[in-house]
């Protein structure tokens, strides 16, 4: 996984609440068996007109936001389905950090698994960032110090989960980390097999 440490970029304001994963990446693009190449379909229905031409009302189609690595969004961003394609599409487009007052739970963790940094911040902070972003200028996200530095340099602190931060800073493969606990998993299974043997003998799936 890519490491996430510091990021400096302009930020694109997407002033909508409840942006669901169907909006981020519609189902017709979920048929892929790859993780890459989804960026051109990001926000497809909003980004393109019915005739396939760019819709310049949409923020990510306007300069300079086309090159934004930071997305500012309204509450409950990424609600809806579990499709990791939503995170992959944002990543492929170039987005590395999303700041919103709240997120869909599964989307939030999907971002982190792809080396992207979703940050929850207060409603007022996000609104202020959006106003600031429309004036241009680069924000710097410093995960180590847990700060968003405004274009004028003013630092705004944010909270972050310790474990997720550790994984992002070091680009850790969490399957590898869990496999180090294989002995614990063996012990758990042996104990469960004794107390709930039917979980192992039922004609399951096998």
């Amino acid at each position: 996984m890519d490491k996430f440490n510091k990021l400096t970029s302009i930020a694109a304001p997407l002033e909508m609440i409840n942006v669901d994963t169907d909006m981020i990446i519609p189902k017709q693009f979920l048929k892929t068996i790859k993780r890459t190449g989804l960026g051109k379909h990001l926000f497809h229905e909003m980004r393109y007109k019915a005739d396939g031409k760019d819709n310049f009302d949409f923020v990510l189609n306007r300069m300079p936001y086309r090159n934004a690595k930071i997305l500012l969004a309204g509450a409950n961003f990424g609600c809806g389905s579990s499709r990791e394609h939503a995170a992959w599409a944002l990543h492929d487009f170039g987005i590395r950090c999303i700041i919103a007052p709240s997120f869909g739970d599964i989307f939030f963790s999907n971002c982190q698994k792809n080396g992207m940094l979703p940050i929850k911040m207060g409603e007022l902070d996000v609104q202020f960032f959006m106003q600031t972003a429309t004036k241009g200028g680069e924000f710097t996200i410093d995960l180590e110090k847990q700060r968003v530095n405004l274009p004028n340099g003013a630092p705004i602190p944010f909270q972050y989960d310790e474990f997720a931060k550790h994984c992002l800073l070091n680009g850790l493969d969490d399957i590898g980390l869990t496999l180090e606990k294989a002995a614990d998993i063996d012990t758990f299974e042996a104990a469960q097999k004794k107390t709930q043997p039917w979980l192992y003998s039922a004609k399951g799936a096998a």
């Binding site: 990791e84 599964i106 989307f107 792809n114 474990f163 969490d174 869990t178 294989a182």
Partner: peptide, 20 residues
């Protein structure tokens, strides 16, 4: 509960998930 594809891979490989 629902999980993303990276977590699907995690469960396939380890039969566990890291959760809060």
């Amino acid at each position: 509960f629902g999980i993303g594809t990276s977590e699907v891979e995690h469960v396939l490989a380890t039969q566990t998930l890291v959760q809060r």
